[in-house]
Design a protein around this nucleic acid. Structure first.
Length: 535
RNA sequence: GGGUCCGUAGCUCAGCAAGGCAGAGCGGUGGCCUCUUAAGCCAUUGGCCGAGGGUUCAAAUCCCUCCGGACCCGCCA
């Protein structure tokens, strides 16, 4: 059974291989083979936006790995209009609905020149952290510089054909009458309220009316202005239904993975690209979306969407890359809860990569090592970092004295023997754990079921705790009770920890009671006994 | 109305491209460390691979049908 490994044995290598073969059979130049990712700029970038770029970059890396030149183009859709005020922004932003996001002021003050560039910069920042290299393009700039001019003209010259293709593929008849171009209204400045109704080829001009449009089930009033625009002036943009095609050709894009939410647009654009622009469209792969897990709030503050920045508060960029790269198919639901498992899983991959894990299947090992390298964007470190279960760090952080958390945790880990191989990256991990604890640290109480005898034991302990004062005495109360009632201490400890911590294990009971205060503990214990209905 | 994905151990999932022994982690259980030490180690438990059919010497994997769950599109971008 001959199994030949392509590249690093990942999905991305396979895609890269068929991409190269496709380009060869099309007889196109191979320097470079470009992939593209579209960056939405009309809201806070979330994990999905980052995922799109990372996947397209991974394919570009796969191409490089096979000895060909490649490049990721990160194309910011910053000429799109604002359709909805993103959660977390003041309602006053409604006044900007319909304006190109590159013409709206920066919501964070004046750190960027516009709303669009602020949003884009958040995503680029995340890409940088994740190790993605890209060539940045801004739609606003691209139109301004006239980089799409030839394609705009060709499309407008063949506008009936374009409208027909759109109708055939989508059943949408709108573009049989309206031109697939949105002028920015020279009177009110909005882009989504204009209706382009006539094209004058000789002067490459479009005549439009600012009539208004329905966006997100809300009617946006136009200002009624009638005007004309030179389509080469950059004072407008193509509709998405034809714009992809234009930029694929103009920027010479050969591959673009896309989320299934825009599958229809891609299908239409493929035909526009091939049949009107005469350019064989890029190879595509459709991936599934990332979803939020229902009903789970990330934090109390409103509008805290699941952004890369949130992930980086608790985990490394590589662990986020793992989340995005490890699986290609399948709808993915994800939330910040996934950080600990992905941190641990990444450690596991690192052990395999550095040959420190137990014997596993060779093919499996190659593939997982390959995945590890892709998580590092093929620039893995020479030395592994320190590996500590994420939960352990959080637990240690929980009991660490305020003010000297780092020293406390470091000492404990030393004692547990975790730092024998060095402490590379320990500070960062402690910081992640402290952030996690700080944001999600509250103890989740569970209803504890217990037998009559167990309830009796808890009640007895409560009484004994009232009479004594030191950690040792607290501790021995448990064993004394166990002896008196002829029960196993283990059993009692488990119940105690379940009541107090929601887990069947815990710190040394005596010192825990001392730290928390016996009054509080007694109160908790009695409450639990009462709830269990055994007393 | 059109389309996509998922279903494998109690849980999270890998394995499916390219058919060849049913896998991992977590959890559970038991044990070790002279009562708990939030560590660690050892052992052990776990399965109608959603159902049915087809192809094949051989199917979790490929094809068809169905069931269940979820999502996207059907405004716009």
């Amino acid at each position: 059974m001959p199994k030949e490994i392509i590249g690093k044995g990942t999905w991305y290598d396979k895609a890269a291989k068929s991409l190269i073969e496709r380009e060869k059979s099309l007889g196109r130049t191979l320097t470079p083979i470009r992939t593209e990712s579209g960056l939405g700029a009309s809201g806070f970038p979330h994990i999905g936006s980052l995922g799109d770029a990372i996947r397209n970059y991974a394919v570009a890396l796969g191409v490089k790995l096979q000895g060909y030149d490649s490049e990721l183009v990160a194309f910011s859709d910053d000429k799109d209009g604002l359709r909805k005020v993103p959660a977390g922004l003041p309602k006053e932003y409604e006044r900007w609905l319909g304006y190109p996001v590159s013409d709206i002021p920066d919501p964070a003050g004046d750190c960027h020149e516009s709303f669009g560039s602020h949003m884009t910069s958040l995503l680029l920042e995340a890409l940088d952290k994740c190790g993605v290299e890209y060539k940045f393009q801004s739609a606003a700039k691209v139109y301004e510089l006239g980089l799409l001019n030839r394609e705009i003209l060709t499309i407008l010259e063949n506008v009936e054909k374009a409208g027909k293709i759109i109708k055939e593929e989508l059943g949408q008849e709108k573009y049989l009458e309206t031109l697939p171009y949105f002028p920015i209204c020279e009177n009110c400045g909005r882009i989504y309220t204009t209706n382009a109704y006539e094209y004058v080829p000789d002067e490459h001009k479009i005549l439009y009316r600012c009539t208004g449009m329905e966006v997100k089930k809300k009617w946006l009033n136009g200002c009624g202005h009638e005007g004309e625009v030179d389509v080469l002036s950059g004072k407008g943009k193509l509709s998405w239904k034809v714009e992809f095609a234009a930029r694929w050709k103009a920027l010479d894009i050969r591959f673009e993975a896309y989320g299934k939410d825009i599958a229809d647009s891609v299908r239409v654009n493929d035909r526009i690209c091939r049949e009107i622009l005469g350019f064989e469209p890029p190879m595509h792969v459709q991936y599934e979306m990332f979803l939020d897990k229902g009903g789970k709030k990330i934090s109390k503050s409103a509008g805290n969407v699941f952004t890369p920045q949130v992930w980086f508060r608790y985990g490394t960029p590589q662990s986020l890359n793992l989340l995005i790269l490890k699986r290609f198919v399948g709808t993915r639901s994800c939330s910040v809860d996934d950080v600990p498992t992905h941190m641990d899983e990444f450690d596991h991959l690192e052990e395999i990569y550095f040959g420190k894990s137990g014997i596993i299947d060779e093919l499996e090992s190659i593939k997982l090592s390959g995945l590890y390298e892709y998580c590092w964007m093929l620039k893995p470190p020479i030395k592994p970092s320190v590996h500590i279960p994420y939960n352990l760090l959080v637990q240690l952080a929980k009991v660490a004295p305020k003010g000297s958390e780092t020293d406390f945790i470091r000492n404990k880990l030393e004692k547990y023997g975790y730092l024998k191989q060095g402490a590379e990256g320990l500070e960062e991990r402690i910081r992640f754990a402290l952030n996690w604890l700080n944001d999600f640290g509250r103890i989740t109480k569970i209803e504890v079921k217990m037998s009559e005898k167990e309830a009796e034991a808890i009640e007895s302990i409560s009484e004994m705790l009232q009479k004594v004062k030191t950690a040792d005495e607290y501790q021995s109360a448990v064993f004394q009770t166990a002896k008196n009632l002829n029960m196993s201490p283990k059993n009692i400890f488990q119940i105690l920890y379940k009541i107090l911590l929601g887990s069947s294990q815990g710190p040394r009971f005596g010192s825990y009671v001392e730290a928390l205060g016996s009054d509080k503990v007694i109160k908790e214990l009695r409450k639990a006994v009462k709830k269990s209905g055994k007393k």
